[in-house]
């Protein structure tokens, strides 16, 4: 189990390989489909993103509403591939890490290799468990999007697995190859 802290540097990213189990500590941002669309539109117009993306990690998640006296609601990952049309441009602008579920497509893999970024899988459907790693939660942009707003989360020992690394290593491919078998 590797412990890593955000923001991520090239050397931290280069030290991670598909299959590594990690605990992430620091601040991460949540963002889903609608927020990604807006962020990429801002970049296309040459405008600033709502937060400094250098070295940051985006968690593809939209939590349930926070209950009184608690920090965050249930907060597991959503399917990452929907963010693939937007991720390469964010990586190009300094995004170093993404947390979600499910395999990324080639344009994202290429951007990860070129700009040194990493993709972590969190366990989909484990939102109540993951919530325990979240110590603070504040909306930083797009409040009108409701569950799709961009939040900054402070996390301690957020459990994730390196699913696709910056060298093209891919646990979705390697894992399936290892465990597939023929049926007679």
């Amino acid at each position: 189990m590797k412990k890593i802290s955000t923001p991520l540097t090239d050397s931290v990213v280069e030290d991670l390989r598909a299959g590594d189990e990690v605990l992430i500590t620091g601040t991460i941002y949540t963002g889903r489909d609608a927020a990604h669309k807006r962020m990429v539109e801002l970049l296309a117009k040459g405008e600033q993103l709502p937060f400094d993306i250098q070295g940051q990690v985006i968690y593809y998640a939209g939590p349930t509403p926070t209950r009184p006296g608690e920090v965050v609601g249930s907060v597991g990952p959503t399917t990452s591939v929907r963010m693939d049309p937007y991720a390469p441009i964010l990586i190009q602008h300094g995004l170093k890490g993404m947390i979600g579920k499910g395999q990324r497509t080639q344009p994202v893999v290429d951007a990860m290799k070129k700009h040194k970024a990493v993709y972590f899988a969190a366990v989909g459907g484990a939102g109540a468990l993951i919530a325990r790693a979240v110590k603070s939660n504040k909306t930083v942009a797009y409040e009108d999007l409701g569950p799709e707003a961009v939040r900054i989360l402070e996390v301690v020992d957020f459990p994730a697995i390196v699913a696709q690394d910056c060298f093209g290593g891919d646990l979705y491919v390697e894992g399936i190859k290892k465990f597939s078998r023929s049926v007679s």
Binding site: R67, S74, G127
Partner: peptide
């Protein structure tokens, strides 16, 4: 473990309800 936490605390088991 997540299912147990959810049942005990009544926090939704998955954020996609």
């Amino acid at each position: 473990e997540n299912a147990k936490i959810s049942r005990d605390t009544r926090l939704a088991s998955c954020q996609d309800t």
